[in-house]
């Protein structure tokens, strides 16, 4: 009984490694675009809002609305909706790179709001002090905002990573591959419960690792 179980698991090892790579690709692409584009978008939303350093009601309303619309889509529907764009960007509509396109879009919108929230927590007086010393907006963004909010920003990225680990599983449904896809194909369709258990355990451990490292990093960078 137990030797059959081990054999099953050994048989699936190559698939498991392949699936881990696919999950890795999806996460890496999704998170980098979220960090760069979502980070920039969130910063602009913060600067454009009422009383912000670059207050602009029209842009805040339009871009904020776009972010909200994107976030309203159930992820599976978003994936299907953006297939034409996916084909243009990734050259195909299946595989981890293709799945990374809707993942990135969802991640950018989600992270933009998280960044806006994190920046909002900075006391107004600190920003005012920088303004009154003649600092330009870019100087304030990079030397005050990102410095004061770096711990909340690290935690926001951590929580984004955890959410998107489960999104990558959904991406498997439309041929994205990944660990979640493996669990469904072998564990669910072929009734190999042990594989379902192993993959789920892997995901649980992964989530714990991500959260704990995020917490440690955030603490390391906080001097408040």
């Amino acid at each position: 009984m137990s030797s059959a179980l081990i054999e099953n698991l050994l048989n699936i090892l190559p698939d498991f490694i392949q699936a881990s790579k696919e999950t890795g690709i999806m996460l890496l692409v999704g998170l980098s675009s979220a960090a760069i584009f979502g980070g920039a978008l969130g910063t602009f939303l913060y600067l454009w809002r009422e009383g912000g350093l670059l207050q602009n009601r029209v842009l805040y309303f339009l871009v904020g609305g776009l972010v909200n619309v994107t976030r309203s889509f159930p992820f599976v529907i978003l994936m299907i909706t953006v297939i034409p764009l996916t084909k243009k960007l990734a050259g195909t509509s299946i595989g981890p790179l293709a799945a990374a396109v809707p993942l990135s879009i969802a991640a950018i919108a989600y992270f933009a709001r998280l960044v806006e929230l994190a920046l909002n927590e900075i006391p107004r007086g600190v920003i005012e002090a920088a303004e009154s010393m003649g600092a330009s907006v870019p100087k304030i963004v990079f030397s005050v905002l990102y410095v004061e909010a770096r711990s909340p920003l690290i935690l926001a990225l951590t929580s984004l990573t955890v959410s998107f680990l489960s999104y990558t599983a959904a991406a498997g449904i439309v041929g994205g591959g990944g660990i979640g896809d493996l669990a469904i194909r072998f564990g669910y369709y072929r009734f190999q419960t042990e594989i379902m258990v192993v993959t789920t355990l892997t995901l649980i451990v992964l989530v714990q690792l991500i959260q704990v490292s995020g917490n440690i990093l955030a603490k390391q960078f906080n001097h408040k």
Partner: peptide
């Protein structure tokens, strides 16, 4: 309230 940058 001093308004120093706490992470500097």
């Amino acid at each position: 309230q001093f308004n120093l940058i706490s992470n500097r």
